[in-house]
Amino acid sequence: MGEQRIRVLIAKPGLDGHDRGAKVLARALRDAGMEVIYTGLRQTPEQIAATATQEDVHVVGLSCLSGAHLELFPRVVELLKEHGADDILVLGGGTIPAEDISVLKERGVAEVFTPGASTQEVVEFVKRSVNL
């Protein structure tokens, strides 16, 4: 008799070292009953996609505050596709201007959370999106 858990990878792509939001969110997801894998700073999109695939997570949450999101987030989406893991949902967060959000969504990012978003919004979004 197994127990099901939502599994989430929280990742910091690029060189940005601001991990307050990522860590706070990781804890909030944990407290909402999810298993959260956190891999630390300076992850390449290749590392993130490989980790997400091996860990078979439902969701990858990408956090970037350096402005490199347009380069990095869609790359993760592409690589997941290459791994045959395009059922994994990719979410983004950080200082992301409104006009970039639509670009990211067009390129496969399911949702983007910007400064001021509450962790509960993210928790709810993940729960809604993942059907266990």
Partner: peptide, 17 residues
């Protein structure tokens, strides 16, 4: 960030930054 972490602008890890 590449400057702060010791990578030149043409390093692969500098992409987008």
């Amino acid at each position: 960030l590449p400057t702060q972490i010791g990578y030149d602008s043409d390093h692969s890890l500098s992409r987008g930054e």
